[in-house]
Amino acid sequence: MLRPFFDWFQQLAFSVAFRQSTWMFAVIDALHLVAIAVFAGAILLVDFRLLGAGLKDRPVAQVARDAQPWLVGSLIVLLLTGLPMIMGNGDKYYYSDIFWQKMVVLLVAFVYTFTVRRAVAAADEGRLRPFWRRATGATSLGLWLIVAVWGRLIGLL
């Protein structure tokens, strides 16, 4: 279904230049990884707090509010570095099951983080049973863990 789309963006001048350069992919890949570290930090602070670990002396909402700009900022860098890697090597990703699995889980994790998780983290602590906070943190941790591991495996399989 997406075959024509992949065929189209792969032959754009930018994609061709990106593919032919010896260093561009490597540099973008390295920046992607630095952004992963920042993103992971911002995710972990809040998920650990939801699970009752880490910054447990702080209200959840405060931890989440402080982490939010770094979460959003690093996510933007991840998209800006992730897209050129796909554009330059469309075929490789199109035929990779691991890539598509990562994309599906990424979409779920993204929507979940900015809807359910966000609402739970912002909710009054008296209004929600600790179980729901823990479940929300554990789900987020699990989803993003799959995204990270699958991302690492794309390059290998």
């Binding site: 992971a40 930090g41 972990l44 405060q62 982490a67 770094w70 990270a148 591991v149 495996l153």
Partner: peptide, 30 residues
């Protein structure tokens, strides 16, 4: 390799969150 990246996320991710506080540009209420 996957475990190495997970370790990196835990270590570097949380070290960076602490660094942002030191620099004064993140987690300022803690």
């Amino acid at each position: 390799l996957a475990l190495h990246v997970i370790g990196m996320c835990l270590f570097a991710g949380l070290v960076l969150m602490m660094d942002l506080r030191l620099v004064g540009i993140g987690n300022r209420r803690t």
